[in-house]
């Protein structure tokens, strides 16, 4: 639908990319249909019943040259349009609006310069937006089909992407690079708002995230965990996912492996903090090391306090 209704022009790249599509696919269809029908015609016309004796022809240098040169010219035309539609994606204008995108298994979060953090990408219309792409664990793919942009989010590398959204609305944002269990659930939305509306939303820092309202410390903890994606790996109902369930976790004993030795610990505030800041130090028995990433710098001590409050309520 995106391609088919390319007139929607949701971003500044749509025209260039779709033009390349049209030219490449147009030429391809002409050749595909032309060659297929030529082939079928030959099979019909020179069927052995009609033409019992073949005429031996070994080749033709002239034809070989023609069908080398013409396709070469055509593919160079295709190359040109491919390049022309892509070149503007390389460099963002200097005055772009900056947003940091953090990908992790299996969600994206978006951080704005004023400290706002969201799990939906809010952007102003008709303004260049530059995204800094950061991965906390494995490679993810940042893909907004309607905008025609895609860029891998590679751990250890700072990458970026940019666009100018030209249409108000909600557009899908996928993870396009396979990243493990819930890769197909690692999607969210881009919400494009007219600049005025966006400004109003942006300056309103009373609401940390506009998805859920802040009520009590426990609700707050739940909201933080939801936005940052803990529930991709943990449940609250006793079922195991990638990590242990949080049901009844607080105050209970767990067996953990620390540097190769098993030991038993009681889950308290300190343990939870350590599990979040340095999850691979004590690994819960029966689970794999290295899956949960340290959240240092992403969750403040205050955030963790709120999370702990919430975990206490899960009996």
């Amino acid at each position: 639908m995106y391609i088919l209704s390319s007139t929607t022009n949701a971003s500044n790249f749509v025209t260039g990319v779709d033009k390349a599509f049209m030219i490449i696919m147009g030429i391809s269809f002409v050749f595909l249909i032309g060659l297929t029908f030529t082939m079928l015609y030959f099979i019909y016309k020179y069927n052995r019943k009609k033409n019992p004796v073949a005429t031996q022809i070994e080749g033709s240098t002239k034809l070989e040259i023609i069908w080398t040169v013409i396709p070469t010219i055509l593919v160079l035309v295709m190359f040109y349009y491919g390049w022309a539609g892509w070149a503007p994606m390389r460099n963002a204008p200097k005055d772009s609006f900056n947003i940091q995108v953090t990908g992790r298994m299996w969600n994206y979060t978006f951080q704005y310069e004023n400290g706002k953090t969201t799990d939906t990408l809010f952007v102003p219309m008709n303004k260049a937006v530059k995204l800094k792409l950061i991965s906390m664990d494995v490679i993810h793919g940042f893909f907004i089909p309607a905008f025609r942009i895609k860029e891998d989010v590679v751990p250890g590398r700072e990458k970026s992407a940019w666009f100018i959204a030209q249409r108000e609305g909600l557009f899908e944002l996928f993870c396009s690079e396979y990243c493990g269990l819930d890769h197909s659930y690692m999607y969210t939305y881009v919400k494009v708002m007219p600049e005025q509306k966006f400004k109003a939303w942006y300056v309103d820092t009373t609401k940390h995230v506009d998805v859920a309202a802040v009520e009590s410390p426990t609700a707050n903890g739940k909201r933080i965990m939801k936005n940052i994606g803990c529930f991709a790996c943990h449940t609250v109902d006793g079922n195991k996912l990638v990590g242990p369930s949080f049901k009844g976790i607080y105050g209970h004993k767990v067996t953990v492996t620390t540097g190769g030795n098993d030991r038993e610990v009681t889950v308290d505030d300190e343990y939870i903090k350590k599990s979040i800041y340095d999850p691979n130090a004590d690994v819960v028995k029966g689970y794999n090391k290295g899956l949960m990433q340290p959240y240092v710098g992403q969750l403040s001590e205050d955030d963790i306090k709120q999370i702990t409050e919430y975990l206490k309520t899960l009996k």
Binding site: F13, G16, V17, A20, F21, I24, M25, S28, V75, M78, F79, Y81, G82, W83, A84, G85, W86, A87, M89, P145, R148, I149, K150
Partner: peptide
């Protein structure tokens, strides 16, 4: 060919 061209490949 669609995959060989830059703009369309990225998509």
């Amino acid at each position: 060919l669609v995959l060989g061209a830059l703009a369309t490949n990225v998509y």
